[in-house]
């Protein structure tokens, strides 16, 4: 992807993120993500129906990369089954950590495919995805 396009997508998701604002609804589970080594803190609310992610919203204070990656993650994970979402999140982690990954599964999230070379930004790009993946894996364990 050319750098201008990449920048445009990241900045658009940073400036106008999808689903920003919490619902404070008991039908949602709350997931707090913060990182011991950085100052970003994002809170998510997730609603799963019949094994499918039917809603995912967030709010908090974080840097541009964290915020944009949260927005892009939400766009990708909405309406995916828990199994599909876990697969996508793991694939995303592989991309950020510089390992092999399936490009087709990540669609828009490939705007972060150059982060693996930037140690200081990796934790920002991973924050939301790690938090959601951790919850989804627990959910799967408890519901299988």
């Amino acid at each position: 992807m050319d750098n201008n396009k990449r920048r445009e997508i990241i900045l658009d998701n940073f400036n106008n993120p999808i689903n920003r604002g919490l619902k404070y609804d008991d039908n949602y589970v709350k997931i707090n993500t913060n990182n011991e080594s950085c100052i970003d803190e994002l809170n998510f609310e997730l609603k799963i129906d019949n094994g499918k992610i039917v809603d995912l919203v967030f709010d908090g204070e974080a840097c541009a990369i964290s915020t944009a990656s949260a927005s892009i993650m939400i766009k990708i994970l909405l309406n995916k089954t828990v199994d599909e979402a876990i697969k996508i999140c793991k694939n995303y982690e592989n991309m950020i950590n510089g390992n092999d990954y399936d490009k087709d599964l990540l669609s828009l999230a490939t705007v972060f495919d150059n982060i693996s070379g930037q140690a200081s930004r990796k934790k920002c790009a991973l924050l939301s995805w790690n938090g959601i993946l951790k919850y989804l894996e627990e959910y799967k364990k408890n519901n299988s």
């Binding site: 950085c38 100052i39 970003d40 204070e61 974080a62 840097c63 541009a64 200081s120 930004r121 920002c124």
Partner: peptide, 8 residues
């Protein structure tokens, strides 16, 4: 601007 973005 988020402080971390300024530092970066």
């Amino acid at each position: 601007v988020f402080s971390q973005d300024t530092a970066i």
